[in-house]
Structure formats: C-alpha cells, structure tokens
C-alpha cells in the first residue's frame, strides 16, 4: 500500500511537466510565504498579546483583545462595515449591469473603446480620485453649484445640501471606486451569450422583457457572482474612502485597524480586529459561494 503510493508520487514527480510546474510556481510560492503566510501568522500571534506603555508588543496568550471587540462600540463598527459592503455591492450591481449590457451589445468595433473608457479612471491615483469627490460633494462644491444654478433658473429658493462628509458620500465613493470591477465580469458574461439564444427565446414567444429575465439575467449571473466577490471583499477592508469622504462619523473596521496601528499604537488590538475582519469576510464569502458558486459552472457550459 505504502510503496504503491510512494511509487505513484515518484512517477508524478518524475514527469517533466511536474518539474516545470513547480519551477513556474516557485517564485509566487516564495513571495506568498514571505509576504502573506509569515505576516499572517505574525498577526495571529500578536493578536493574542498586549502592549506596554510605549506601544510595543508584549507577547503572550490572552483573549483580551478579542473580548474587547465585543464592546457595543466595536460591534457597531463591524456591523456598519458589513452593511456598507452589502449596500455598496448591491448599488454597484445595479449601476454596473446596464453599463455592461450596453457595452456587450454595442457593435464589436466600439466595445474596446468603451472598455478603455471604463478603465481610464484607474490610471489616476485612487486617493486623488476620491479627493475629487470632495470637490463635487462639499457645500460649495460642483453639485450644489449646479443645483443652485438650476434652482435659480426656475426661481426656487435653494439651500445647499449637506452632502459631505456623510455616510452617503462614502457610499458614492465606494460605488465610484469599485464600479469597473463589477462592469468587467458582467460584461464578460454577457458578451459570451450566443446571439442565437436571444433569437431562440424570441422564437419561442418571449418578448424583450421576458427574454431579459429568463435568458440574459441568468446567464449574466456568473459575472455578477465574480464581481460581487471582487467588490464585497475589498470594501469590507477599505478605510481610505471612509476616511476621506466620511469624516469622523463613518468609522469602518478598516479605519479601526488603521488607527490602532498608527494612532493608538496598539498593534495587538489592531491584529485581533484584522483577524476578525478576515474571519467575517471568509464566512460571508463561503456562504455566498456555497449558494452561487464562484460563477464558473454556467460559464463552463
């Protein structure tokens, strides 16, 4: 039995493809070990420690940091992060779908141009783009300016809207930031749909609306699933958007963690929060993928 397994193992390793495969993944493997696995283990270890008066880590084993996270203040922060991630994902899907649909149904020659336009904003630094939203949303900003001007035209009194800083501004920023990551996978799903499926649906008596609901939407689902993972996970951990557009009122787990490391100088508590964030993201992702898969099985067909 044992020698059989050994022989099989040797045979697999003896084939050239196996060696080549190992060589190919080796750099990535090293990189991941050095920069992901080891830091992760360190984070776990530190999260059970504490801090001394200077803010240095004191190693040890206590659950104090985790228990501290049960404080309603922190539970609220965690909850708000999850809710915001959900809201962002839903909003991004709603906005991304029509855009992806439009691009996928555009003449083949124009599609690349549209995709290019969707990606162009990513060339500008992310922080700068989020700052730009301040210019748009603040009391004397572009949006209020335009609204005030429009109200003036029709003679309505206008009180500048208090849009920034606010949770709404954070949502808008998140939507803006993550839109391309939803458009692209949905576009890929939609583009793959064979034109004749739409004709088959029409042929069988489905009008445009029913064709959309029964054919287009289900076949775009893999893209939405992939996009959801690409959006939900980073939103859960993000802190820059909420920092810039939310002011001090919108504190997410990301902000909490960042502040523990940089302001409060309590890396142990920050590590515990990081681990909890990871666990929450993992749980949501697992539940989600159990339900919808990674969006691949329909694509395979």
């Amino acid at each position: 039995m044992k020698t059989d397994a050994l022989r099989r193992w040797l045979r697999i390793w003896g084939t050239r493809e196996a060696y080549q495969g190992l060589l190919l993944v080796a750099p990535t493997l090293l990189w991941m070990t050095a920069l992901l696995i080891i830091p992760l283990l360190l984070t776990v270890v530190i999260s059970f420690g504490g801090r001394d008066a200077n803010g240095d880590v004191v190693y040890g084993f206590s659950l104090a940091n985790y228990l501290r996270l049960l404080d309603p203040l922190y539970v609220g922060i965690l909850w708000r992060s999850v809710v915001l991630a959900f809201q962002t994902t839903v909003l991004v899907i709603l906005v991304a779908f029509p855009i992806a649909y439009f691009v996928a149904r555009a003449p083949a020659g124009r599609r690349n141009a549209y995709l290019f336009l969707i990606l162009v904003p990513l060339w500008t630094n992310f922080v700068i783009r989020i700052y730009a939203w301040i210019m748009i949303l603040r009391t004397q900003g572009v949006l209020n300016g335009v609204l005030g001007w429009a109200a003036g035209l029709i003679g309505l009194p206008f009180q500048p809207l208090d849009l920034y800083p606010s949770p709404g501004a954070v949502l808008v920023g998140m939507l803006y930031e993550f839109l391309p990551f939803m458009i692209l996978p949905i576009f890929t799903s939609l583009e793959k749909i064979d034109e004749s499926l739409f004709e088959a649906a029409a042929d069988l008596g489905a009008n445009a609306v029913r064709t959309f609901l029964r054919v287009t939407l289900p076949l775009a689902l893999p893209g939405m699933v992939a996009g959801t993972i690409l959006v939900f996970v980073p939103v859960m951990g993000s802190f820059i958007v909420s920092d810039i557009l939310g002011g001090r009122n919108v504190v997410l787990v990301g902000n909490l963690i960042q502040r523990q490391f940089l302001d409060a100088r309590d890396p142990a508590f920050g590590s515990a929060a990081s681990i909890i964030l990871m666990a929450m993201t993992l749980v949501v992702t697992i539940i989600y993928t159990r339900r919808f898969g990674f969006g691949e099985e329909i694509v395979r067909a």
């Binding site: 499926l197 004709e199 088959a200 649906a201 029409a202 042929d203 069988l204 054919v215």
Partner: peptide, 20 residues
C-alpha cells in the same frame, strides 16, 4: 410582426439550447 408573435418555430443550426 416580431418573431415572438409569429406562428412559426425555428430549429437553429447550433441548436441554441439554453445552457442554464
């Protein structure tokens, strides 16, 4: 008259079965 209102049905060359 759009296809979905015509009393005809089509068998497509690539079958066009709904994969989902």
């Amino acid at each position: 008259t759009p296809p979905y209102q015509r009393p005809v049905n089509t068998v497509f060359q690539n079958y066009a079965l709904f994969p989902h």
